[in-house]
Amino acid sequence: MKKMIKIFSQKEFCFFIFGVYAILLTWPFLSIFEQGKPQTVFYYLFFMWALNIFILFIMSLGYPRLKESTKNTKKPRG
């Protein structure tokens, strides 16, 4: 799991998975799922959506918890 989180939280993975989804959610993949029962494409889209949420959840686990960016720790100089 830790390994998965590590992979998912890399910047390159963000672009990669975006590209993968850009393919999975457009032609020709969608047309494949329109060959069967009419509702297949509906279920496919929502399944992909749920998978998307799962991937994003894993990504969020690895999202760095940044310290407050405006914090200034310097001593007064005046």
């Binding site: 910047k11 975006f18 959610l25 998307n52 994003l56 990504m59």
Partner: peptide, 12 residues
């Protein structure tokens, strides 16, 4: 679906 996809890029 578009917003859901583009969220992949939000960490960046």
């Amino acid at each position: 679906l578009g917003p859901t996809m583009v969220i992949f890029l939000w960490p960046v």
